[in-house]
Design a protein around this nucleic acid. Sequence first.
DNA 1: TTGAAAGCGCTAACAG
DNA 2: CTGTTAGCGCTTTCAA
Lengths: 338, 338
Amino acid sequence: MNERPKIKDIAERLGVSAATVSRALSDSGLVAEPTLSRIRDMAREMNYRPNVSARNLRTQKAMAVLMVVRDVGNPFYLEILKGVEATARAAGYSVLMGNTENDSDREIEYFDMLRDGHADGMILMTGKLPRREGFVASVEGGAPIVVALEEIQDAAFPHVMIDNAAAARNAVEHLIGLGHRRIAHVSGPVPEIMSVDRRDGYRAAMQAAGLAIPDGYEQRGDYLLHTGQRLCRALFELPEPPTAIFVANDEMAFGVIHELRKLGLDVPGQVSVVGFDDLFLSEAFYPPLTTVSQPRTDIGRAAMTMLLDLLSGGATPRKPVMLPTTLKVRGTTAPAPK
Amino acid sequence: MNERPKIKDIAERLGVSAATVSRALSDSGLVAEPTLSRIRDMAREMNYRPNVSARNLRTQKAMAVLMVVRDVGNPFYLEILKGVEATARAAGYSVLMGNTENDSDREIEYFDMLRDGHADGMILMTGKLPRREGFVASVEGGAPIVVALEEIQDAAFPHVMIDNAAAARNAVEHLIGLGHRRIAHVSGPVPEIMSVDRRDGYRAAMQAAGLAIPDGYEQRGDYLLHTGQRLCRALFELPEPPTAIFVANDEMAFGVIHELRKLGLDVPGQVSVVGFDDLFLSEAFYPPLTTVSQPRTDIGRAAMTMLLDLLSGGATPRKPVMLPTTLKVRGTTAPAPK
DNA sequence: TTGAAAGCGCTAACAG
DNA sequence: CTGTTAGCGCTTTCAA
């Protein structure tokens, strides 16, 4: 472990040149058979590992990509990571995880990692570019960046996402179909695009059904559990509380349901709830959560595939790639009470 | 973005040597004032970032550590990561995440990343060393590795962990204190040490209270949700089913409770359940889960602190560092039914 | 306090 | 097919 052998050590022991060893070890097909095997055997025997810094410096590549999210703590991203990772590994890339927590300094930091050679490309899932003068312009020229999940307006990056508005609308229509008329919405942090899209889907469904959205029926959240609790309370302090709530993500939906229970309201008997994300726990939750399911692994796979394309000089798709969602109808939605 | 300036570019523009620029940029205190500021300003203006490969090659360090876990998908690790990351960042290190999925090849792969210079040290949370001849021996000589959460026997690495046996025993004693006598256990993947420890805690509590453990009362699981469901069913096909279940982790406990509900059994009216981990959802779960809470962030912080110690040539603590746990009594435990 | 020069370990021309 | 040579961008002696 301590004596990391170098290419030169192998070369000397075998009486060949360092270049030959390098070639033998990289499957270049340029080394003849007696030597080839001897080198490989010796490398194995000496437990040789190429020094990545040296290699990266020489080749000007890191064979790594960066996946940047708002909050690693959100289990939602993990399935995406799996898709990204599987695809990356298959192409010889490793994946670094970046966590911004919405902190602008950290966002910049990860962009810097691209410039300093830590990674060759980036999958951005934060929904925004760091705020720094001339940043967008400086980056846009063709930096190997793919935006996933969220959308960055006015930026010419390839996007892979779902149709948030359509999925939200579909979820609300399900509620309407059950006879609900007083339907409230707990949103994400509007005006971020993803949150806006989901809210717009809610509005579109309501409007199409000729339903009014009373004051206070749209509560602005932040995707966190306890915020769901708080906003639920606010909703039930209204003069005319809703009989159904469309919540912008599952985590807040859990909070909403938790609070409903505290208020002595039965789900779905008195209040129906629909979430968004379909976390791995959503089905085991009680009652099992009705929610919008996203093809997470596919999103990861698609994003990484696009990034590999960019890295090998491929062209940028002009239009966002849209992946399909499914509404999983489970136990938190029921016909509206009379 | 495209023209990554190098130290030489700055040097030329300013008419100084590359060495001086390097020194100025590294706070070495070896550059005099007029030059110092000029260099720094110019670096900022040119948006300069040092190339990490070159620097790492030269300094023989990566300023990165590797945190290797069984399953990134488990939200449990994320809080630990936060502790690790905060401590690492403060010391100028970045954290890479490794995910083994119990795959021996991947385990080896991450050890290799240490040898090839990807990272300077490693926090291992997989509970085992890769199986390869002479591996333990080759690694032990003082590789900068800290083992957290789990324990690796016969390996002289620093350990930071909780007292699983004591925590488990405490949890079961809570059940016994509520009057339960027929207490079953859904374990982790015995014979892995952590699982064994928790099981032994269960056994110790039972024995100390003079309670028998009937055949079939110990079900071997794997920490996964659906396994909790399956094993719960098995438990209730026994001639004398339990009135309480101590489950080795929260995720399986969710599965157990989900299944109990399907079987028409009331929690905690007819059956009490205790979990282990205290996931962020455990409190919002219904009923709120009684469980053992681990100081996750502290574990991460402690592990990283130890690793930094090792990396700066510090000594290895001889004894495992044990962090305290708390039993959170919530809504899934109640007095035993008559 | 600054500059010149060497070299970290590797790969890629270019010759042979 | 193999060896020689140069150089990736940086830090660090050693001299001045």
